Computed example of a mutant assay.
Amino acid sequence: MQVDLFDFVLPAERIALRPAVPRDAARLLVLDGTGTRDLHVSDLPRQLRAGDCLVFNDTRVIPAQLEGRRGEARIGATLHKREGPRRWRAFVRNAKRVREGDEIAFGAGVSAIASDRQEDGSIALDFAGDEPVELLLQRAGTMPLPPYIAGKRAPDAQDRDDYQTMFAREEGAVAAPTAALHFTPALLEALIEAGIGHETLTLHVGAGTFLPVKADDTADHRMHAEWGRIDAATAERLNAVRARGGRIVAVGTTSLRLLESAATPDRLIAPFEGDTAIFITPGYTFRGVDGLMTNFHLPRSTLFMLVSALMGLERMQAAYAHAIAKEYRFYSYGDASLLLP
């Protein structure tokens, strides 16, 4: 499909720079078989059915944004994917000033050797020393806010809490599974009281989620791989949800992508551990999920293609036009949609 089919115009003032307070006060655009409704995230328990199950991503964002120097050159690095105990794949700013074998000093006693430049421009960074890399990043790194936020303001101490979900447990993401940012303990309790279950899986979100689609046709776009895991017990419980007539509703596109990667042709969820580079566009047959809660996505992005595959391109274009007209807040810190095809 032509990528420009997924384009739309978003006024800059619709991009949220801070999350709603409290988190579940964010607005919720519901699209289902009955039409379109403007609600709030706190209304979610009344939009689902007893027996349904929400699936959250329990990945935890690490401070993966680094600023350093190679000699006199200023170098910025955004870690993308772990490749070994001390090696991370990174997207590098001012990469032309970095050669294989160069040492980049990131301050606070943290340095890394650059190697293995790939076609996508990424570079492998091997961190020096014996300390766990996670401790080095706590000293030298900052939260990797999406470029559409970081371009308007610098990350600060508040982002260390704001850009982390209440389910965050497994360290390794360089971007938050932002749909789950809307959840609070009170909302989760209300969902439980309404008979709506929840499960967690792990997908370590990479910086590739923010890369623009440069190809003119979706067939020519290459997705970056991300590591994920669904254990056998979780898969068994999710299959039991469907066997009882409940629906599996992914919270966030990351949860959805892993569920679809693990799904079998007969709509069962199998245990999964490894990389996934699944790319979902209109025409895809969904097997792992029955619905999705997600934020509002970038034009021409793989994530807008995904929601268009779930609900139909014309309906999502109309829904986004409605959201813009009604002044919904977009992107990572913005409002949410509940999509029930």
Results as ranks from 00 to 15, higher is better:
Phe6Gly: 03
Leu10Ser: 05
Pro11Met: 15
Glu13Gln: 13
Ala16Pro: 01
Arg18Leu: 11
Pro22Ser: 13
Leu28Ala: 09
Val30Lys: 03
Val30Ala: 03
Leu31Gly: 02
Asp32Thr: 11
Gly33Trp: 15
Gly33Met: 14
Leu39Gly: 01
His40Phe: 12
His40Ser: 02
Leu44Asn: 03
Pro45Lys: 00
Arg46Gln: 08
Leu54Pro: 00
Asn57Gly: 03
Ile62Glu: 07
Pro63Val: 11
Gln65Lys: 12
Leu66Asp: 11
Lys81Ala: 14
Glu83Ser: 02
Arg86Asn: 02
Arg97Glu: 05
Arg97Gln: 12
Arg99Leu: 14
Val110Cys: 05
Ala112Asn: 08
Ile113Leu: 03
Arg117Leu: 07
Ser122Lys: 02
Phe127Ser: 02
Phe127Asn: 00
Ala128Val: 15
Pro132Ile: 13
Leu136Asn: 00
Leu137Asp: 11
Gln138Met: 15
Ala140Lys: 01
Gly141Lys: 02
Met143Ser: 02
Arg153Pro: 01
Arg153Met: 14
Ala154Trp: 12
Pro155Arg: 09
Asp162Ala: 12
Met166Asp: 04
Ala168Ile: 09
Glu171His: 02
Ala175Ser: 00
Thr178Leu: 06
Ala180Gly: 04
His182Phe: 06
Phe183Ile: 12
Pro185Ile: 11
Leu187Ile: 14
Leu187Tyr: 05
Leu188Thr: 03
Leu191Glu: 10
Leu191Arg: 04
Gly195His: 07
Ile196Ser: 02
Leu201Glu: 09
Ala207Arg: 08
Gly208Gln: 11
Thr209Tyr: 09
Thr209Cys: 10
Ala219Leu: 09
Ala219Ser: 13
His221Asn: 06
Arg229Leu: 14
Thr234Asn: 00
Glu236Asn: 14
Arg242Leu: 12
Ala243Ser: 11
Arg244Trp: 04
Leu256Asn: 01
Leu268Thr: 06
Leu268Ile: 05
Ile269Val: 11
Ala270Trp: 08
Gly274Asp: 14
Gly274His: 07
Thr276Gln: 06
Ile278Asp: 05
Tyr284Trp: 15
Phe286Ala: 12
Leu292Phe: 11
Met293Ala: 03
Thr294Arg: 13
Leu303Asp: 04
Phe304Trp: 08
Ser308Phe: 02
Ala309Trp: 13
Ala309Ser: 08
Leu313Thr: 03
Glu314Met: 10
Ala325Cys: 05
Glu327Phe: 02
Tyr328Gly: 05
Arg329Phe: 13
Arg329Asn: 08
Ser337Ile: 09
Leu340Trp: 10
